[in-house]
Design a protein around this nucleic acid. Structure first.
Lengths: 177, 177
DNA sequence: TGACTCATGTAAGAAGTTACATGATTCT
DNA sequence: AGAATCATGTAACTTCTTACATGAGTCA
């Protein structure tokens, strides 16, 4: 059976502790959503698939008939195989950048306005990350430390993109004046 | 008819000049591939779809029966509608970051090795971008200037991710010693 | 009691990847 | 002549999004 990225994400989360499909959904919406997301309509079928492949098992029942799942030994071994495997090169895929590529077709003033909005958006994200930092200390549990390292990547990403958008807007404005 | 991101990418490229499906494929493989890519098996059906919707038209024939397409007025108007429209928030989606999120499960030495490889990979990408810069001057044609602005985003992205990976590796190593 | 959150599913369709398939031209 | 590149398509499958559908528990 072939396990995809979503499958590995689920295996990883269920290895740290038993969770329901609903718990997974909210995790993908919040913290983990910054790097990988999935909706409940993807998660429930994935849980069924992983269970029938013997990589996870139902280990209990929660509040209102909710089902708690945990990674099996086979699941952990699959997870570690993935964690140790080769990383295919990841190509950035951004609709925003695609639009920027075509911005020479619009009025320079509109292009600049677009870039300024982009900068603002990245600064907003930056603020959210900064507010989250106190809750994810670098010197806490290993899982927390790594969550913080991922958060730091998001933070640096948004900071550098905000700077880029400001630089680009200034570059276009300089040229128009 | 609903036009997706691929459709807008095609409309944009065909607005700058007539191209064949093959030309589009190579463009998505090279320059534009840094922000948006598509394989020929996606492109040919998309061309058929855009043509039957009247957004592009075949305006000539190339070397060996290849077909040259150009954006129609309706296509240009759809393109401009997209360029001026609202930008839905873009959530970063990275299998690498997902793996980092779970790196507390592997030996610290392996985790550090992973991060160092990541840093190298980003530095390689950085070198490629830097080599491309002379061919895309900031003071050239508008379309070139914007291509350079997009290139600059890629460059800053890879630079900041290389720095991040080095920082994270050092952070883990510091803690282990 | 009515709204909201918790909780789990299915269905239809769009988007993307990989593999299959074919033929013309150019270069060595 | 054979290999590489140019050139265009189709088929099968996986992944992801949006919408449909339902029911239990909680709180004002």
């Amino acid at each position: 059976m072939k396990v995809g990225t979503l499958g590995h994400a689920v295996l990883g989360l269920l290895t740290a502790g038993s969770l329901t499909g609903y718990d997974l959904t909210t995790t993908f919406d919040r913290s983990l959503g910054n790097v990988w997301s999935a909706s409940h309509s993807q998660i429930y079928p994935e849980l069924a698939k992983l269970q029938s492949a013997g990589l996870i098992e139902q280990t209990g029942t929660g509040p209102r008939g909710s089902k708690l799942y945990t990674t099996t030994e086979a699941g952990k071994s699959e997870l570690h195989r993935w964690l140790g495997g080769a990383v295919p090169h990841e190509t950035l895929r951004s609709e925003h950048m695609l639009r920027v590529f075509f911005l020479w077709m619009v009025e320079p003033a509109d292009a600049v306005a677009y870039l300024r909005r982009e900068a603002d958006r990245h600064r907003d994200a930056l603020t959210r990350y900064e507010r989250a930092i106190p809750y994810v200390p670098l010197d806490g549990h290993p899982s927390e430390r790594w969550a913080r390292i991922v958060l730091e990547a998001g933070l640096r990403f948004d900071r550098s993109m905000a700077e880029w958008a400001d630089w680009a807007a200034a570059e276009i404005e300089r040229d128009e004046s």
